[in-house]
Simulated assay, not measured.
Amino acid sequence: MTEQTSHDFRTSALRAIRIERDAIEALEARIDDHFLRACETIMACKGRVVVTGMGKSGHIGNKIAATLASTGTPSFFVHPGEASHGDLGMITSQDVVIAISNSGNTSEVVTILPLIKRMGAPLISMTGNPDSVLAREAVANLDVRVDAEACPLGLAPTSSTTATLVMGDALAVALLEARGFSAEDFAFSHPGGSLGRRLLLKVSGIMHTGEQIPVVTEGTTLSGALLEISRKGLGMTTVVDAKGNLTGIFTDGDLRRTLDRSVDIHNTAIEEVMTRHGKTIAADHLAAEALNIMEEMKINALPVTDEQGTLVGAINMHDLLRAGVI
């Protein structure tokens, strides 16, 4: 094996990046009528988008199918070799097929074209050869040709697979925006991830309620409020009037400031030292919103109130941490 210096490694890497960057930039001119037709065909699809491709094109096709599926376009990948041995039954006339082949003449893909055409599923191709069999048979051909592979031998698919992947992302994003797909829609496809928790979890799902809420009424002494803080373990207590409406909050931070003033904790009413008109949140708001408020205000807890200002719950930073929102 030929020895290379660290400088040679760097030169090789930079050359590969530049070649692939040029391949991506060339795609801008390919967002043409074929691209628009592909988008319109998929938008009109009553079934699913079926992606197929061999070898490295298949790996890229898998990723494109996954991206489409997670951004509002139901999609899955079918291996063309397996399609010839039974998996073609997964495709219906209501579906749209995206076939990927750099040459546009890959035998395993070309073999199943007559069957796809016979069942009436519209075909979209992604090829590096607009004069190929695959491109000619498609209702739209997404041109992903490249001037050169990043591989100096011109053998390993590098620039071509990158261009195909980026074209697939462009297609997915165009469809996402056309459908009005939202962050909440995305979260429903990813309920197990941290993003899903941030976008789906409501305050009502993790707040403390009933007897778990630290609460004292106006007129309670500061010492009584401290006992409530200790009992409930949220680092604060809410303060309500006789009707149960929130009038203030007293936190560990308020306690430190109060003690600096040498206040008599046994004879001072809580309303004299509490924070009035503090931040609150509604139960139907996202837990992520509670986190944003806490971080912005540099506080560790929030009372939860209804539209009338009645106290219905409490939430603190530890609740958000346990729920995986942080």
Rank of each mutant, 00 (worst) to 15 (best):
L234H: 14
A170L: 05
F181Q: 11
T258P: 06
A170W: 07
A174H: 02
V240Q: 03
V139K: 12
V51G: 05
K56T: 05
E272V: 12
V78N: 00
F186A: 03
A44C: 08
L14I: 09
A66C: 10
D284Y: 01
Q212G: 11
S107L: 13
I315Q: 02
G168N: 04
G193A: 01
G205I: 04
A23H: 03
A121M: 05
G196E: 02
A69K: 07
L134R: 00
S189L: 15
I265N: 03
R179G: 12
S159G: 07
E218Y: 13
L255G: 04
G61N: 05
D241G: 03
G244A: 06
P152E: 01
D95K: 02
G278M: 04
D241R: 07
Q4W: 14
S230L: 07
I17P: 10
S262H: 14
K298V: 08
L176H: 12
A65S: 13
L201G: 07
L320H: 02
S75F: 01
L199A: 10
I281E: 07
V146D: 00
I91T: 04
T280L: 09
T268I: 10
R48D: 13
V263K: 01
V49I: 11
R198L: 15
D260T: 10
T209F: 08
K117N: 13
R256S: 09
M294H: 08
L195S: 01
A187V: 08
S6M: 11
S230C: 08
S159E: 04
T238C: 15
G244V: 02
A150W: 00
E149P: 12
G86V: 08
L171Q: 02
L234N: 10
